[in-house]
Design a binder for these strands. Structure first.
Lengths: 193, 193
DNA sequence: AAAAACTATTGATTTAAATCAATAAAATGA
DNA sequence: TCATTTTATTGATTTAAATCAATAGTTTTT
């Protein structure tokens, strides 16, 4: 049930069985079906979600009602509206299952207690955030400095698995462009090589 | 010399004098003049920089030779090429002083030793990263979902001070647009209200 | 004080991407 | 199985932004 969760944890920070048991006692498991929402905009985000199996997305909705995908999370990834989780302000993101999924969740209270009681959990959290920050910085930089073509190629190279599992228009949304434009980019790229 | 550094630290995590002294023993001070480089692309980034006074920017250079500003850092902010710092791979960013500046720097070795020896430093690092991640996530989301006009208005609202201190074309670069386009956005916004 | 470099604006033109619209194929559900 | 919804593609047109170019006002440097 928590296999992937702890495999992922141990990859970064080794754990004794006692520590694993302690952490496990703070976690919950949740199964959701495709299209089910884990978080709705304007609700407070009460948990950080780890994906054991399946696929989720987080997205915002703009003034015109169009959706903008902020993040995907497949096996071994975390997802949350971190701002809402930390401040307990209403969320600006929605989180939705794109496939039937098996999740491990941790509540704010559990997270805070673990940070205090378990130094390894604190270390793990810091490393996790560091990695997430670096990845986001690279995405941000690509966004202001690279063409759509390059960014699409990078996405496919970085996430071949996700590329296969989601409809194209969601990649377009993640990249901040339209489905039509992405379709034309793909045609161009296919003919050019 | 370290006033702003510790004021900023204590705002998030209270410190005893012993802890402050310990941390201080790992820090260095550096003064740089306008246009001086703290990091050049392809060098390994050996430190995380805290700005006591002054203003820095980090930027990448693309295949055409144009610069793209990733980040500004004024008093009380941190700046680094975190990927390079962590992995010791060559940096993809340059860091340059936009004003004469007074900096506090911490080396990788010092950072790692402090993380081990000083739990408060570990906590502080985690909180810092969390905040930085949330801010970057908001910037990223604005980038895929808002118009240039809105993003410029947000920048000015969020960083009125930096707006005053840097040339406009650098804000354009940070936003991923051209100086001409930003100039026209400003004209439009001025006439519309 | 003069020259050089930097900065911001504006106009004309080109290019890239969004929008509007239609269609067809594929997946999903009743 | 048939109807509905979702997905991807393509064409025509509009819109937004980049590019090219010129100018003028500022700063900075010598």
């Amino acid at each position: 049930m928590y296999d992937i969760y702890f495999a992922n944890f141990r990859k970064r920070v080794p754990l004794t069985y006692e520590e694993e048991a302690l952490i496990k006692s703070y976690l919950s498991v949740k199964k959701v079906r495709k299209r089910q929402f884990l978080l709705q905009e304007y609700d407070v985000c009460r948990s950080v979600i780890f994906v054991e199996h399946g696929l989720l997305r987080s997205f915002s909705v703009d003034a015109n009602g169009s959706e903008h995908i902020a993040q995907f999370a497949a096996e071994g990834w975390y997802i949350s509206d971190l701002f809402s989780f930390l401040t307990e302000e209403p969320a600006t993101f929605n989180i939705e299952a794109l496939e039937n999924s098996e999740l491990v969740t941790i509540s704010k209270l559990a997270h805070e207690e673990l940070l205090e009681k378990c130094p390894k959990y604190e270390i793990f959290s810091r490393i996790l955030l560091t990695d997430a920050y670096v990845a986001l910085q690279q995405r941000m930089n690509a966004n202001i400095s690279k063409s759509l073509d390059e960014r699409y190629a990078t996405f496919v190279a970085n996430y071949p698995d996700i590329t296969q599992r989601i409809p194209q228009h969601m990649i377009a949304s993640y990249m901040g462009t339209t489905p039509e434009t992405l379709s034309r980019i793909r045609r161009r790229m296919a003919s050019e090589k």
